[in-house]
Amino acid sequence: MKASFGRTGRNLARGAGRLRLLFLMRGTIRVYWRILVAGFRRQSAYLLAAFGGLVANTTFGLLKVAILFATVRAAGGELQGYDVALMSTYIWVSQGLLGSVNLFGRIDIADRIKDGDVAVDFLRPLDVQAAAITTEVGKSLFNLIPRGIPSVLIGGLVVGMALPDHPASYLLGAVSILLGIAISAATVYLVVAAPGFWLVETRGLQILYMVVSGFLAGLFVPIWIFPKWLEMLAQATPFPSMMMYPVDIISGRVDVTESLVLLAVQLAWLAGVGALGQVLTRAGRRHLEVQGG
């Protein structure tokens, strides 16, 4: 009797623990959802900036059309699986993603780490890394509206482009774009913001990131027309996961099976880059020194 009563009590306690965990998780999801929405809203205040970005995207897009179409034609109309129509899709989707995928290496939290404001962030009941990345993703998602979609529309109407054969490409492509945005934010956090716990000046890292990421993400030239060794080098980095793979999936350059493989690669990079960023953040928190008072 006594034993069975004890067991019931234990079960009850376990059930309550599970319930509490569920509430906690729901609360956490809600907090990060709010941060995401706040990032999205914040970006909507900079419409003129978004317009400037669209002008820049379109101008660069037209120059890319000129040089890359000429390359495809000089190669006899087909280059590593790219014809003119598929090249056009690559150009305009990648230009459209430029406002959302972070290839510039600027992230708000970097300034807060540098001037010590991050000490306040550590006092909040939130993970500093997760909150910073969520804010960036929210801002990026907003940018798809004034910069992403118009770029693709302008390209489609003015130049024309190929569309994927399989409707699943759109869904998988959307997931892949979201992952690409998150990977870019997490990588910028890892290589530009987090070293700020130890370095005084991270501008050099930001410039280095900007130079390398665009090239290896396939911003100017698809990495598939690189020489083999350079293509492999690019694939050994998270950069193609930010832009090249999402473009490949949504343009229908790869079929559904290959898309799933690319999505798995993206997930692995997100997990890896995220975990490393978490390690650095924890170590940085212990190392953090804030001057003045």
């Binding site: 003129l48 900036a49 400037g52 101008t59 120059l63």
Partner: peptide, 24 residues
Amino acid sequence: VEGAETTNAFVYGGRYAATQPASV
């Protein structure tokens, strides 16, 4: 002011254009 990127299209876009074979 906020729309600084508009001019980047022509300054940095101009650099990109300048290094291309303009015949294309």
